[in-house]
Amino acid sequence: MAKITYVHPDGTSSVVDVEPGNSIMRGAKLAGVEGILAQCGGGATCGTCHIYVDRDNTKPLPAMHDLEDGLLCVTASPRQDNSRLSCQIPVSEELDGLVVHLPEKQL
């Protein structure tokens, strides 16, 4: 299990034990974390699982693919240099302690 912290726009947070093999998006959905819509179910076609990876992150994240990069240009909340689609980040034990911030809106 990896503990992932989802920080809500109001500053509150949800800490979730996510089973390796799931994505950050799926971990949030399974735990009922509000703020990640994931309308496409993780297919990287909608951009409604946008997150901001904590700026102090030292955990190894996969490289961003062109499809993810393109979708981040049309998200409801502004893209930042730490923006990612949570469906494109698989959880592993190495991500234990990762902190992600949820945007103000997804649609």
Rank of each mutant, 00 (worst) to 15 (best):
H8K: 14
C49S: 10
R26T: 06
H50S: 10
H101C: 12
P62W: 11
R26I: 01
K3C: 00
G27V: 09
M64R: 12
L98Y: 04
T48N: 09
E93A: 15
P90W: 01
S83I: 01
S23G: 05
D54F: 07
A38T: 03
R55I: 13
L95R: 03
V16G: 02
H50I: 06
Y6G: 03
P60H: 02
L85Y: 02
S14G: 00
E104G: 04
L37S: 07
E34H: 12
H101A: 12
G41D: 09
G43M: 11
D81A: 03
Q80Y: 04
Q80N: 00
P20C: 11
L71V: 03
S83Q: 01
S92F: 01
G35H: 03
P103I: 04
C40S: 02
G11A: 06
E68F: 08
C49D: 15
S23M: 04
S13A: 15
G35D: 03
V18D: 10
D54N: 14
E104V: 15
L72T: 08
S14A: 14
S14I: 01
T58Y: 01
S86H: 12
S13F: 15
H101Y: 14
S14H: 13
H65G: 13
K105I: 11
I4V: 14
V91N: 05
Q80E: 13
D56Q: 14
T58N: 03
L30T: 09
P90V: 01
R84I: 05
L85Q: 01
H8W: 00
S77M: 00
K29E: 07
E34A: 14
I89G: 03
A76M: 08
C49V: 12
A63Y: 07
C40V: 02
G70W: 14
T58Q: 08
M1Y: 09
Q80L: 11
L95H: 05
S77W: 00
V7A: 07
M25L: 10
K3Y: 00
V100C: 08
A31I: 02
L30R: 07
L37T: 11
V91S: 05
P78R: 05
A38Y: 08
L37F: 10
V18F: 11
A44C: 15
E68H: 04
H101Q: 15
G27K: 10
R26S: 10
T45N: 09
M25I: 09
Y6V: 08
G11Q: 07
C49Y: 12
D81Q: 09
K59H: 15
G47A: 15
L67H: 05
S13K: 15
R55Y: 12
A63M: 10
D56R: 10
L98N: 03
R55P: 02
L85F: 02
A31Y: 05
Y52I: 06
L61I: 14
E94I: 01
I51Y: 04
